[in-house]
């Protein structure tokens, strides 16, 4: 039954990639990338059980953390075109444009 879950997740990831490449807006792509990351976490977990090596869950946990930070970082970069702005600088930049 882990094989079935793995196959379903792989199909879902392929379909998510289609959405990520098709767009049409930036936010569709970010949403698809975030969803792809969540499915990767699940796939690593299921694959760990499938191959009787559940130690893979450490990698899944790490990937879940990286995925969330990555999504927020991409959104921040496309809003301010900069990742190192402080709060006040960011507020100033919003006033300008």
């Amino acid at each position: 039954m882990f094989i079935g879950a793995t196959a379903a997740l792989l199909v879902a990831m392929a379909l998510t990639l289609i959405r990520a490449f098709a767009g049409p807006t930036l936010f569709d792509r970010v949403l698809a990338a975030n969803s792809f990351g969540t499915k990767t976490v699940l796939l690593i977990g299921v694959l760990g059980f499938l191959t009787d090596r559940p130690e893979f869950l450490d990698i899944a946990l790490l990937y879940a953390l990286v995925n969330f930070i990555g999504t927020i970082a991409v959104l921040k970069f496309f809003r301010y075109r900069n990742l190192g702005l402080s709060n006040t600088e960011a507020a100033d930049r919003e006033e300008i444009d």
Partner: peptide, 27 residues
């Protein structure tokens, strides 16, 4: 292993809505 799975599920439970809200807010 169950403890790790609980950690993963808690993390996904809290971050997924946050990420979705951030994307919608940015859009």
């Amino acid at each position: 292993i169950t403890v790790k799975l609980i950690l993963i599920s808690l993390f996904i439970f809290f971050t997924s809505p946050t990420a979705t809200h951030a994307v919608a807010n940015a859009a």
